[in-house]
Nucleic acid binder design. Sequence first.
DNA 1: TAGATTGTTAATCGATTAACAATC
DNA 2: TAGATTGTTAATCGATTAACAATC
Lengths: 208, 208
Amino acid sequence: MEKQFSKSIINRIPLYLQDLKTQEEQEKNTSSVIIAQRLGLGEVQVRKDLNLIAGNGKPKIGYNIKDLINKIESLINVDTDTIIIGAGKIGEALAYYQGFSEFKFNIVGIFDNDIEKIGKTIANKTIMSVERIKEFCADNKVKLGILAVSSENAQLVCDELIESGIKGILNFTNTKLNLPANIKIRNIDVAAILATLIIEINTDKENQ
Amino acid sequence: MEKQFSKSIINRIPLYLQDLKTQEEQEKNTSSVIIAQRLGLGEVQVRKDLNLIAGNGKPKIGYNIKDLINKIESLINVDTDTIIIGAGKIGEALAYYQGFSEFKFNIVGIFDNDIEKIGKTIANKTIMSVERIKEFCADNKVKLGILAVSSENAQLVCDELIESGIKGILNFTNTKLNLPANIKIRNIDVAAILATLIIEINTDKENQ
DNA sequence: TAGATTGTTAATCGATTAACAATC
DNA sequence: TAGATTGTTAATCGATTAACAATC
């Protein structure tokens, strides 16, 4: 639906939404210069992005903040039902994480394969057996799965999620998952990201 | 030190290291074709990257795996002392996270501002007061800080870390931090990343 | 009306890919 | 030697930035 955005624009859209929400209470309109400055982007880039996203800027006046927010939220769409697989430390932290509501994500279920954990409650949700994933996704309209299982089980659970009709996966394991082109993925390999940071520091000629 | 790498190459270097380590036991040499296939990259790109990183491929033979690993590890350098600030759910999950050792990160300290938490132990480490950050960094040679505090305190603690001589920050908050150009940063805003995923899904013309 | 700010077209920049020469 | 695989140069592609016309 709607228009197709490039990968780089998609990565900026949530930033725009976050920033616009902090501007919302103070002003009615904003401008590409203001947004660019607040987010550390180029103003032409912001203008081009906003034109593509909403296309309703007015010369001299700028952009109506509420309208921009609505346009961006329509891309995120209504509430997105999401499940977490893996109730270890990371899965638990994500279950308690408040930030998801900012983008209208609902964590509707948590799963684990550990018989010790199944039945217990975290963040007001009862941990279910991974065997129930498919059934649960069929009964509810789960769109996204957050993968916080061990590396060894990652591909297995990934396959399960795909069979369950899930549309996207947020992968916290360091396993490189194989999936069909119609399933979208984001990898958050915390250690690998931290490694890119130390490599940048160590190889930066400018400073030290 | 060494050569300067582009941002896109830096992001791939940890992937190469991870993959090479899984190849290490089975073979002595590998090739750009094999690596490209395993990581889903172009073979020319791999060849160009490895040439820039190590520059010791041999026509017909390929690359010596152990040698490549050594070269990449020399970019990551010796063990990197890292502290975590914020002993909430996310900070705690990170404290217990095993994956850091893959890239030789040592979590050497955990800090919080909550008097209830200070003095308690997680992952065999005693939680210290944030007031001790500067002193601790001076005594030890801490290079990186992982920021897992509340959004409201993020900039404050960030400033503290910069004053403490830290070189890089891994920011788990959704606050856009202001920092000097010589301090490097990686932002992991989990909700924002998840938002890019649902936007890609919702705006993808191909599927549905 | 004049000025500020948008939107668009063209230019630049950086990264990826293709073609091919070099060589173990 | 012949073939496989590297390394490099040129071409392409995509994203960003610059220049400028349009307009509230």
